[in-house]
Design a binder for these strands. Structure first.
Lengths: 349, 349
DNA sequence: TGTTTTTGCTTAAACGTTTTCTCCAATTAT
DNA sequence: ATAATTGGAGAAAACGTTTAAGCAAAAACA
C-alpha cells in the first residue's frame, strides 16, 4: 500500500507537497502536479480513507436506515427497489452505502445517532421506519444531512411518492371504467395512509361518488391474511362493491385468493386493484391493475438531494420532492360502463 | 465527541492508561479500570473508528458484493432474503455492512480488490455475480477473508443452497404425485445450473424415468418471457409433458401465463413447479409448488463463517456448508397417480 | 535600488487511537 | 540488607492524512 510518504520519497518532495498536488491545491506548480500525479498513478496509490477521514471528518459513506418492521426490510419489494436505485446513484458519485446498524441488542447499545457518528456517515437516508421512534427523532434533529423517503419532517429534505396524485389517478381510472361501488381497504395509520385516504375522499367527492362507511376498511400493509379477512367482510355485504382497492399489491393477492375460493372470478364478478406495481403484478394472470410507483426516480432523487446537502452546506435544507407514479392497467378490472348505463336507463326510462 | 484525552484529563491518568483500561489490558489495576470505565460511560464515550482502524487495520465493516446482472440486484427476491438474514447476523456481532461499490464508470477506476482495501473491509461476502470476471478472481485470491454464496472457489469458504438435494426432493415429489412425463426448463449455464441439471438426470434415472431430450429446455433465470416461449414449445409437442419444472418462481409465473392463455387450466390440464419459494408463491391462486430455499440459514451461516474467518485467522479457510431447502406443496400440481394406474391397467389387463 | 508581493515549497502540528518501551515502586527472593 | 522480580503506570512513537504557518526566491512595484 503506497502512501504519500512513498510518493514523496520517489519524487524528492515533501509529503505536504504530494498531498496538495493530488488534491489540486493552487500553490503547487503545474509541472510538479503532473509529475506527482503520474508517479502516484504508476505506484497505484489510493488515499487511506481512515487517515483522511480522521482529519477531514468526511467519510464518503452514506448510511441507510431501513428497519425491519415485521420481517420485511430488504425483502420489501418497493423499498428494495428504491434502495437499489439510490445505491446506484450514490455509487456513481463515489460514495459508499452502509446500513445503519439497527440491532438494539448489542452489548454496548448505541442510538441511531451515536452509531451514525461512530461510522462517520456524511449523510443518512431514512425509509420505512417507525417515524415516531424517539431515536429516529434524535437522528433527524441532529446536524447530519438527512433525507427521508415517504415521510416529511419539519425542515428536512424529503422525497415522496405522490400518494395524493396516485390515489386520484387510480380512483379516476376505476371510475372511468364504469365502477360506482368502490371499496377501499387502506393500510395501517401512517403519514402515507392519511394522505392516500384523504385523497380518496376528495377524489370521490369530485367524481360525485358516494362511498358508504362500510366500504372503508383497514388492514396492515403487506398483510395478506388481513386483506383476505377484510375482503370477506366486503363480499358478505348485502350490497357488495364491484371493485376493491387494496393497500398494496401483496394485499391484493390476498384478496384475490379469497375471492377465487368463493368461486367468483376476476374481473367478471368483481374487480381488484393494488398499489405499488411490484414486478410480479404484470406476470400473474390476470395482470394486476395497480399504481406503479416510480422507484427509479424516488431513489435517484433521494441520492441527488442528499449529496447536494452534503457537498453544498448552503443548500436549502427543506424541500419536498414529489414523484408521481402511473396507473398500470391490468386485467383485474372490468369495463362495466355499459352495464351501468343500462341500469341507469332502467331507473330513468 | 469525547476522546480518550478527555477521559484521561477527567481521571487524572494518561491517555495510554485509558486506552488500555477500556481494552481490558492486564497491566492496569482493576480499581483503575472500573473507575475509567465508569467515567467513559458517563461521558458517553465511543471510540473513534477511523483513528482505531488507522492503527489496527480492523474496520468492523464487511463488504457485500452483489452485482446487478440484468437490473436485478436488491430486487432479486432470493438474494435479498439471503442478504437480509446475513445483515442481521453480522450486525449482532457489531459489524456493519457496506456494499462493495461496483460502479465501473467512476473517474478513477478501482478494481473490486482495490475498493475493498480502500474501505478497509475486514471481510467480503460474494453472491450473485459473474464468477468468471477476472476482477472477482483477483479479489478471491487476495488475503481478504471471503465467503461465497452459491459458488465454490478452491480453498475458499462457501455457503451453498443444496441444489442437488433440492432437485432430488422436488423431482421425487413430482414423481410421487404420479407424473411420468416431466419437462425441465433449466436456467442459463452456471455452477448452480449444472448441479441442478445433473441431479435431475441422476434422480430421473434412479426413479426409472425416461426424459426425452426435447423435454429439456433452457431459459435465463427470472426471464419471464423466455420461460413463456419455452413453455409454448413444450405445449406444442405431440406428446406434451404433464408437468413442467421451471428455473425459478418468476419463470414459473411466465409459464402459467401462456398456459392460461391457451385456455388450459392448472393443475387439471398440466402441472407447474417453480424453484426458490419466494414469498408470493404462497399467495397466488393456485399456490405455486416450489422448492423453498432456506435463505435464513444461508445468510446466517455465511455471516458466521465469515466472522469466524476474520476473528480466528487459524480457522480452516475452506469449508462448504450445504443448506437444504424444503418442497413447498402448492396447488399447481395434481395428484394423478390413479389415472396412471388406470392407463397402465389398460395396457396390462 | 529597495521594498513589497507573489509563487512554490517545507516544516510541523494535529486528528484519536494503539502499543512498545521505559520507568518506578513495591514486593519477593537471596 | 541487597538483589531480583513484579505490577502498574506513563512517555512517546506510530498509523497516513491535511493544513496553518513559515520561509526563501522570484517577480512586481515604487
Amino acid at each position: 500500500m503506497a502512501s504519500l510518504k512513498d510518493i514523496a520519497r520517489e519524487c524528492h518532495v515533501s509529503v505536504a507537497t504530494v498531498s496538495k498536488a493530488l488534491n489540486n491545491h493552487s500553490d503547487i506548480s503545474e509541472e510538479r502536479k503532473a509529475m506527482i500525479r503520474h508517479k502516484a498513478e504508476e505506484m497505484g496509490y489510493h488515499p487511506n480513507l481512515f487517515a483522511r477521514t480522521l482529519k477531514t471528518k468526511r467519510s464518503y459513506n452514506i448510511g441507510v436506515l431501513f428497519t425491519d418492521e415485521a420481517n420485511n426490510g430488504l425483502t420489501h419489494d418497493y423499498f428494495a427497489a428504491v434502495l437499489d436505485s439510490f445505491k446506484i446513484a450514490v455509487e456513481q458519485k463515489d460514495y459508499d452505502l452502509t446500513f445503519l446498524n439497527c440491532n438494539q441488542a448489542r452489548k454496548h447499545h448505541m442510538s441511531y445517532l451515536e452509531r451514525a457518528r461512530y461510522r462517520g456517515f456524511d449523510g443518512v437516508v431514512i425509509a420505512c421506519v417507525d417515524f415516531t421512534d424517539p431515536e429516529i427523532l434524535e437522528l433527524v434533529q441532529s446536524d447530519i444531512p438527512i433525507v427521508t423517503v415517504d415521510y416529511v419532517f419539519n425542515d428536512r429534505m424529503a422525497v415522496m411518492s405522490d400518494n395524493v396524485r396516485g390515489i386520484e389517478d387510480l380512483l379516476s381510472y376505476i371510475y372511468q371504467m364504469g365502477h360506482r361501488k368502490i371499496a377501499y381497504i387502506h393500510g395501517a395509520d401512517s403519514h402515507v395512509t392519511r394522505s392516500r385516504l384523504s385523497s380518496f375522499f376528495r377524489t370521490a367527492e369530485k367524481l360525485g361518488l358516494e362511498i358508504p362507511d362500510e366500504y372503508i376498511l383497514e388492514s396492515e400493509y403487506r398483510d395478506v391474511e388481513g386483506a383476505a379477512e377484510a375482503t370477506v367482510k366486503l363480499l358478505d355485504m348485502q350490497e357488495p362493491p364491484t371493485c376493491i382497492m387494496y393497500p398494496d399489491d401483496l394485499s391484493a393477492f390476498g384478496g384475490i385468493n379469497v375471492i377465487r375460493k368463493r368461486g367468483m372470478s376476476i374481473p367478471e364478478d368483481i374487480s381488484v386493484v393494488g398499489y405499488d406495481g411490484i414486478r410480479l403484478a404484470r406476470h400473474v394472470v390476470p395482470m394486476l391493475t395497480t399504481l406503479k410507483q416510480d422507484t427509479l426516480h424516488l431513489g435517484r432523487y433521494a441520492a441527488e438531494k442528499l449529496i447536494d446537502l452534503i457537498e453544498n452546506p448552503r443548500t436549502a435544507v427543506r424541500e419536498i420532492t414529489n414523484v408521481k407514479g402511473t396507473v398500470f392497467e391490468g386485467q383485474t378490472i372490468r369495463k362495466m360502463f355499459e352495464e351501468n348505463r343500462r341500469e341507469e336507463d332502467d331507473r330513468n326510462p
